[in-house]
């Protein structure tokens, strides 16, 4: 117990050290201080939702049998894969830039931490589902509704990404910033390092 909590503290200290180093760099300061640059990066990040999660939603709704039911499931998934990945690439790059602009506060944001966990879960789900779909596609490609396993994966995907949107939006709010009057477990999970 003590060792694992000590390990978590060490990780948090290291993350904070990295964030402070990044925050002191002229690149981070430039991003942070420039009104138009920062706002356009954020606008691009939000607008690209339409490409990344928009395509993802169409694919998942197809798997649930409620959209494009008259088009083979694999056609929708394979054709929309590339525009979706272009979207996610833009999201990732602009997301890194947003982190770089405000590294210390973001590192210690409980919402940012939950968002990263949800992103990892969504990536694992997508990766497992992709393999399953490729292996099984011949058997249900033309069915309006995909088999149960595919539907569960699609519903899980939509739920996880809804969580990513909610936690991503919450990062902007200062409800649980370190140094505030927070319950101890929030400060612990957010990785607030007492100095």
């Amino acid at each position: 117990m003590q060792t694992s909590s000590g390990g978590f503290n060490r990780v948090n200290s290291a993350l904070l050290q990295f964030a402070e180093w990044l925050a002191a760099s002229s690149f981070s300061i430039g991003l942070h201080e420039s009104f138009y640059l920062y706002n356009w990066i954020e606008t691009t990040h939000v607008m690209t939702l339409m490409l990344s999660l928009g395509m993802l939603a169409v694919i998942d709704l197809r798997m649930l049998g409620v959209a494009f039911a008259n088009v083979p499931a694999s056609t929708i998934a394979e054709r929309l894969d590339r525009p979706m990945l272009i979207g996610f690439t833009i999201m990732f790059i602009t997301g890194l830039l947003l982190y770089t602009a405000i590294p210390v506060r973001t590192t210690q944001s409980i919402w940012f931490r939950i968002k990263v966990l949800l992103l990892i879960a969504a990536a694992i789900n997508a990766w497992l589902f992709r393999g399953y779909m490729l292996a099984a596609k011949k058997s249900w490609d033309l069915d309006a509704v995909a088999p149960r396993r595919a539907r569960v994966a699609a519903a899980l995907s939509l739920t996880l990404w809804a969580g990513v949107i909610v936690t991503g939006r919450f990062i902007a709010y200062d409800w649980f910033d370190c140094g505030g009057d927070n319950p101890a477990f929030i400060d612990w999970a957010a990785g607030c390092v007492s100095e």
């Binding site: 939000v46 999660l53 928009g54 054709r79």
Partner: peptide, 29 residues
């Protein structure tokens, strides 16, 4: 946050329809 989910859905369906009309995606549908 729910407004943003609506944006993803609206934007995604606009892009799917319009990029199809421009022959960029889903050309075999």
């Amino acid at each position: 946050a729910v407004h943003l989910m609506g944006l993803a859905l609206l934007g995604g369906t606009v892009l799917a329809q319009d990029l199809r009309l421009l022959n960029v995606i889903l050309r075999d549908v």
